[in-house]
Structure formats: structure tokens, C-alpha cells
Design a protein around this nucleic acid. Sequence first.
DNA 1: CTGTTAGCGCCTTCAC
DNA 2: GTGAAGGCGCTAACAG
Lengths: 320, 320
Amino acid sequence: MTTVSRAFNEKAIIKAETRKNILAIADKIGYVPNFNARGLVTKKKFIIGVFFSSLHDGTSTSFFSAAIGSLYDALPDNYLLSINDIKRVNSFEQLVQNRVDGVLVVSQSDDDDEFIYQVKSSGIPLVVINRYISDREICNIASDDFAGLKDGVDYIASRGHKRIGMIEGIAGFTSSVQRRQGFDQSVISNNLTPVEAAIKIGDYSSKTGQEKMAEILALPKEQQPTCVVCGNDDTAIGALRACYLNGVKVPDDISLIGFDDIFYSSVSIPSLTTIRKPIGQMAGLGIKDLIAIINGEKVDIANRVKIQPQLVVRESVAKL
Amino acid sequence: MTTVSRAFNEKAIIKAETRKNILAIADKIGYVPNFNARGLVTKKKFIIGVFFSSLHDGTSTSFFSAAIGSLYDALPDNYLLSINDIKRVNSFEQLVQNRVDGVLVVSQSDDDDEFIYQVKSSGIPLVVINRYISDREICNIASDDFAGLKDGVDYIASRGHKRIGMIEGIAGFTSSVQRRQGFDQSVISNNLTPVEAAIKIGDYSSKTGQEKMAEILALPKEQQPTCVVCGNDDTAIGALRACYLNGVKVPDDISLIGFDDIFYSSVSIPSLTTIRKPIGQMAGLGIKDLIAIINGEKVDIANRVKIQPQLVVRESVAKL
DNA sequence: CTGTTAGCGCCTTCAC
DNA sequence: GTGAAGGCGCTAACAG
């Protein structure tokens, strides 16, 4: 019995031949170790909990799918992924403490902090991706949105734009703040003119993007910016639609740039110049770190990983 | 010990007051039953396996997110969802037999049949949604794509269109066949003219939608259809882009209709008239049936549930 | 390197 | 209505 157990446990000491024989027989009779029994002894569940800020709103569908795809690519065999919604965690003990070996938070908002600290203080292995966490005791992998947006606006400047506007993300979100700072930084270094009346607070949704863009287009012609920076692609897609409804041509009459590089930004009309957020990389590295922590390996948690986003040039920014 | 166990099991016989007391104490000391131990005895895993045809290609991201959202809405507490990719099931025993209480297949293609029958023959509770399965021993919930497409083409006819084309879905997929039949049916009953040279085989992707639409637009003006029916919204979004690149205005110069009602069809330029596929309903009913089967309740498996899709009128079909 | 023993935490008998 | 005993299938500790 023990020998069979050892045959199925990688690190166990067992003669190679014995293992081979056992595995062969197991395969023949269709034997597979029982996870419940194994877990009862080892206190493991072989399940990773993945928690999104929200499965319903806020999370762009492309973002969600891309994240899950990459998560699976990096996940060891025999681990299961339990996808969850932070807002729907009724019983922390029941859903988290007692059912998963580790937690990966795909965080989009400060609102998640309560949950994150609950996990942290309960001692469950934890990795937070997608949003910068200042607490250096939490393993964190984020994208450098500041640099990303700065690159984007630098590109706009290089195309000859001077007067620019912006439709920001949700007020208070780390990503919104960082993107705005990248915007400001590039405005300064390129000596651009931010158009006050064309800088709006949005909420990362297409609907609001459309509304805010309509407001910008309603400004007197001479007060309008030549390019509007959108907090994300969903916002830009809404903005695109506002232009369409107002008979304004993109990029001929006004230029637009997004952030994220969701799938539909490549097929929108016109296709969207944007900044690609490395969601796949973040997810992959996140899982790898989390598994390492679970296995008790040393991970340099204090090392704030920042992955560089990448400018994707398509059709929505005109050369002036 | 036994009494505590009973307190946590709904159907157990126990004095209401005793249960209340136990639950209160459990709550205070943070006790939660251990799932592994419980499962070891009851042979349950409290995990539902959800299997998609493919997490990577083929599955529209909106479709995927919508399905998962609805799945969770219908899932009993204390159940976990394990989202998987049929193509990535390496070890059936390890990933399925030994880890989940039931399987929900969100099927998009005949290719899934092998997996579906493997589940069926292993006796694991099974529900297949999203694609029609003729085997009446399998619980099946699908949408009536035939009726959906017929409604769509009827609508087109009511707008005065006569000459129509089509970019079909992936050859061989049940959904492609049914949609095509709905198309044919409406063509006959409305006495429309299907334009042979404008009926193309696509693959449900935007890329191919764009290519095929470009071919249609390359036809001599007088041979072109006034409306093209697209196999799904992704195809239509690609087609929209082909029109844009060729300077053809939708719906002024040519009309387009999609299928699915993915999120981006509401913000595309122009927004897409389409047929809403009831993915949420299918997922919800599917989980409900699956749980019932798991719990040994009687479910009328032979009853082929067909949910009606719904026409969503937006901007892409002109009135002639 | 392999086998023996004990026990993980719960639920299911069966007594009371 | 409640409690005592046994065992689910596995792995850890120990002996050989």
C-alpha cells in the first residue's frame, strides 16, 4: 500500500523499476489516487482559488477570458482552478480557508483590499496580480501602467498632436491614478497642451466612454483636442461610437487611443491604437509564484514585479 | 461529534434547538466541516466540472464570460466550479472521474462527442448545453438556432430585402447546419433570392468574416446581395470591417445581421442587429438539472429543452 | 528500498 | 433525539 503511494508521489524514494511496474498496473486497472483521502492526510486541496473583483461588471470579458486562459497554461496538472467573484464570497471559511491551497487575486480596485487582508491574515498563500499593492509582504505582480500610458502619449506627441484630452478610468482605482500620472508626465516632457474641458472622469465602461466623448465633441470646434486618450479600450470603443453618431471621423477629424488591447480593439472601426496590458504574463507568473509559495519554496515576495505594457499601433491616431 | 455532524447536514434528524446551539458555537470558534473528510465518506467532491470546447479559439470571449456568470448564479453554495478545456483533458480519470461530482459540457462542436460519451459511459452525472444532442439518454439544453435564424431572415424580408447572402459558421457544426436551415426555410417562405455567389463558408471568426465579406463586395455591383446574414456576431464584426475598408456604408449600401448578441455588437459601428442566444438561461437550467441528477432526483432527461433565441433590432439592417 | 501501523475528520450504522 | 464504534483511502513515522 505504501509502496503504491510512493509510486504516485514524485519525490518519494522508490526503485525506478518498482514504480514503473506499479504505474503500469494502475493504468491497466484504472486506479487513480483519491484526492479526498490524500488531502485529508496532507491537508491539501489541490485547488487554487482565483478571485476577480467582479465577474459581472467592471471586468471586461476579453480580460477575463485572457486571464483564465493563461492561468491554465501555467497551472500544474492535478490542480484545479476555482474561479470566483470577491463580491460573492459569503463565507470566507467555507469558500476559501477550507477549500483552496492558495489564492490568486486578480484585483482591479481598492475595494478588494479587505478581502486581500483577510486572506493574508489567515495565512493562506496569496498572490495579487493586476494592481499595485504597496504592502511588501504580499507577492504582487502588476503592469507598469504609468510607463504604458506615458509611451502612448509620447507616441501621440510624435504624430504631431498638441492639444489632448482624456477620459479617465474609475476614480480611485490604482490603475486610473497611474495612467493619469503617465499622461501628465508625457504632457510635461513633450510640452503638450492638456485641454481642461476635455479631461473627463469615466468608469472604464463603453457607455460612459460614449457619453463623455459626446460632451467633448459638443465643445466649440476651436476648443476641442486633436486626440483623446481613453482609460481603457472599452472606453475608447464607446468614444468611437460617439464620434460615429456625431458624424465625426476617426482619425481624420479626431484621434483616439485606448489601453488594454482587448480583442475587439483589433476589429473596431477604425481599429484602435492602444497599449497592450500583459495580462497573460501576469497571470502566468502569478500562478508560478503561488505554487512555489504553496510548496514552501523561497519566493522573493518583496520584489515588486512590474511588467511593461507595449504600444500597439493601429489606425486610430492620425499623423498631423 | 455525531450531533455536530448532524447539525451541519440539512436533512439529518436533530432537535432544532440543539442545531441552533451547535451552529452558534461553530460560528464563534470558526469551525467549518472539512470537505476532504466529508467527501472521503460520502464520495462527493462538491465540485462541478464545466468543460468548454475550447478556451482559446472558437469560444467568443463574451460567450465565455456570460456562461460563467450565469453558472455561478445557479450554483448552490458550497459547490465549486472547475472550468476546463475539453482539448486539454489529459487524464480523464484524474481530471474528471476522480475530482468532480458532475460534468456540464458547453459544447460547440461534434468534436466534443468523444468526451461526452466518455463521461456518459463512466456514469458521471452529465448535462450538455449549447448544442443539440440527439441521444435521448443525455440531458440536453440547447437554443433553437433554426427558429432564431428564421426569425432574423423573416425580419430582413419585412424590411424589404430580396437578394440575400450568408457567411456560414464552421462546416459541420450543428449550429451552422441549423442556422443554415433556418435561412433556407425563411428564404422559401418569404420568396427571397439567395445569391449563390454570396453564400460563403466561414468559421465563426472575425478574420474569416472580414475575408469572406471582402469577396462578396468584390462581386459586380448588380450581383451583390442587399443584406448578408452572418453565422455569428464575430463574423459580422469582421464583415463590418471589410465594408469599412472598402468604403461601403452599413446599412446604407449593404445590410448585415449577426447571431449571439455578444457585448460588442451593441457598441460596434453601426451597432449590430442580431439574434440573442440565451446562453445565460441555458447555463442556469443546465446547472439546476445537473445538481438534481447528482442528488438523485428525477429529471426528465429525454425532454430535449430548446430555448428560443430573440431578435434584437439595432442599426445594421436598412429599410429598403 | 519496502512493509507495518496509526490516524487525518467526517458520516453511517447501531445502540440507547 | 443523542452518543459510541467503525471505517472511508491515503500518507507519515517507524522498523526492517
